[in-house]
């Protein structure tokens, strides 16, 4: 088939591709032009073009700020802990759901698990204060009525970390199961039947059939998570964090918000954003390379 015939036959598929491409061009590649702000003394009355070039001065300034290193450390720390706790959670939940026999119970559980994903972080923040507050929080009310000292879940930095992680799991674990459940439907049922015939128990089947079939999905998601190691959402640390635990809750995204949007120093904020993007890219490539070498799985 020549090129013309090929195109005539498949043009509809290409037409479908136009929209995602446009999305990436308009919303992802177009704004990259703004990166030049990092190298300019940005004055928003004169626009990007009118502002003066300053070379790497802004980078020097950012790298000399104590808060930059503190927020960088916190970003990596929170993401790493999240990876330990929130990454396996949806996998475990998905396998548990998959093992459920009763269809209506499975559907009900799924719905209940998905709901938190659709609640805005601002509202979750409100709920967190009501549940974990020291003085009138639900949990502490129970603790104190049993005669124990109240636990400062939100104001002691170590306790706060636990709160942060638990809330993260609650919010994302259910939704995260979707990809795993989709992958699980692709497993050949005959494998399980054969295992039954061989007398394998439930745990054995999970270990030898379910998990290996999920391996490509797990690796892909792991690479993506590692790529996001240095990027961190704004809402969760901002909403759940507070003045008392800022030593841990202040992360790069809240730093960018404070310096860029609140203080109007767009140049410095862009520098931090660019830094995050470059390091994030290195992490993705690194993780991809490692997984190719070690497990022969990769996404690139």
């Amino acid at each position: 088939m020549n090129a013309f015939g090929y195109l005539r036959r498949y043009w509809q598929l290409y037409a479908l591709l136009v929209f995602p491409l446009l999305y990436f061009i308009i919303f992802k590649y177009g704004p990259m032009y703004g990166i030049v702000i990092a190298f300019k003394d940005f004055n928003f009355f004169q626009g990007i073009n009118g502002s003066k070039w300053i070379g790497l001065d802004a980078f020097r300034e950012v790298f000399a700020m104590g808060d930059f290193y503190k927020t960088l450390r916190n970003t990596i720390m929170l993401n790493f802990l999240d990876l330990l706790v929130s990454f396996p959670a949806p996998l475990i939940v998905a396998i548990m759901l998959y093992e459920l026999k009763s269809a209506w119970f499975k559907k009900l559980s799924q719905t209940i698990l998905y709901i938190p994903h659709f609640i805005s972080w601002v509202i979750i923040g409100g709920i967190v204060y009501q549940v974990f507050g020291t003085q009138s929080g639900m949990i502490n009310n129970i603790i104190t009525s049993l005669g124990f000292e109240a636990v400062p879940f939100l104001t002691n930095k170590a306790d706060w970390l636990v709160t942060y992680l638990i809330v993260g799991v609650w919010q994302s674990a259910g939704w995260g199961t979707i990809i795993y459940l989709a992958a699980l439907t692709g497993i050949n049922r005959e494998l399980f039947e054969a295992a039954d015939v061989d007398g394998a128990g439930r745990v054995r089947k999970i270990w030898s059939i379910t998990l290996p079939s999920l391996k490509p999905t797990i690796v892909t998601l792991l690479i993506i998570s590692l790529g996001n190691m240095i990027a961190i959402g704004f809402e969760r640390p901002y909403v759940i964090g507070n003045t008392a635990v800022r030593e841990y809750s202040d992360v790069l995204s809240t730093f960018v918000y404070r310096v860029g949007i609140e203080s109007g120093q767009y140049t410095l904020a862009t520098v931090v954003g660019l830094f995050q993007a470059v390091v994030g890219l290195l992490f993705v490539l690194g993780a991809n390379y490692a997984s190719k070498k070690l497990a022969d799985q990769s996404i690139l």
Binding site: T155, T243, A244, R246, R258, V259, S263, Q265
Partner: peptide, 21 residues
């Protein structure tokens, strides 16, 4: 003050809260 104002306001509150607690 224009440059560090926002950052230092946050730090100030942090000082109050942490030294009190």
């Amino acid at each position: 003050e224009a440059k560090y104002g926002t950052t230092l306001q946050d730090k100030f509150k942090e000082i109050i809260v942490k030294t009190a607690m």
